[in-house]
Design a binder for these strands. Structure first.
Lengths: 149, 149
DNA sequence: GTGTCTGCAAAGAATTTGCAAAGAC
DNA sequence: GTCTTTGCAAATTCTTTGCAGACAC
């Protein structure tokens, strides 16, 4: 779908700034606000930071984007709206897992732990991976064998 | 274990401020920095915010606490250090799921999606629940006075 | 007594807001 | 023409930092 139609379809007016931001999101799929600001402004330096913040908000409100909190605690905006899971690699890459069966397995597995009057709303799985090579050399940090001196 | 011994066992000096913070964490198990600041200062208003930030950091570094990013994007400090999962209820309650089998099932299930040179480091499952009753909107409680339950 | 921890206040970073002009429809 | 969006700069919020005195050991 053309971007302008995509925007209109969720009730948003089409502006050049919104076009650029959505184009960038289509390209990168996931990104933190810093990354998005960087890429957007590399394409159009006239777009201000506050405008980008506002656009990200309106896109999320309109259901055009979703967001979640990444490994590092930063909010990640995501072009995929439907429920899915994520792998965070050591190279800061984010891989989507769209697997309804996985959600279903988890749902069944934890059902007994849900309070009586509550129902599962959303399940998110975050998987962090590390590099195998570096993993071999991983050392226990903070291993204090004796007092300082 | 006595708090002072707990602190000493990880190489931290025992101060009144650290005692209070650890006591609070033992009581609440999970909390955001705001909540922790609030409770700590209700018990001892002389403890400053910057000190509490520094104590939370040193506790995490020492392996006394873990932290993760909650539903709302805020960092949650957690008295449980070993890998586990969480349910976030509509009432802002956080329930721990310590279930190694669940982690194992997920691990096996996603193995094929992990890049060649990467290995799974950590798996976190976040489950949000909503109130069954409040499917539509919140109801005024005093419409009919009834006993709690 | 020595080295670490705390309180204070200020700095720094990240995000939001008010307002007037520009722009979309 | 009307209502929304944008740019700008200031405000706000959250967290960190430097330093001097207090404190733990």
């Amino acid at each position: 779908m053309k971007i302008s139609n995509k925007l209109k379809s969720v009730g948003l007016k089409v502006t050049p700034q919104r076009r650029v931001v959505y184009e960038v999101m289509q390209k990168i799929c996931h990104g933190s606000i810093d990354e998005i600001i960087g890429i957007v402004r590399s394409q159009n330096p006239d777009i201000t930071i506050s405008t980008i913040y506002r656009i990200m908000d309106s896109f999320c409100q309109a259901g055009l984007l979703s967001k979640f909190v990444g490994n590092n605690g930063k909010v990640i905006y995501d072009i995929t709206v439907k429920e899915h899971h994520h792998i965070f690699t050591s190279g800061e890459e984010i891989i989507d897992i769209e697997d309804e069966w996985l959600s279903e397995i988890i749902r069944e597995h934890v059902l007994l732990k849900i309070p009586e009057n509550e129902a599962i709303d959303r399940i998110s799985v975050y998987i962090s991976t590390k590099n195998k090579e570096n993993g071999k050399e991983k050392i226990d940090i903070d291993k204090r064998s004796s007092d300082s001196g």
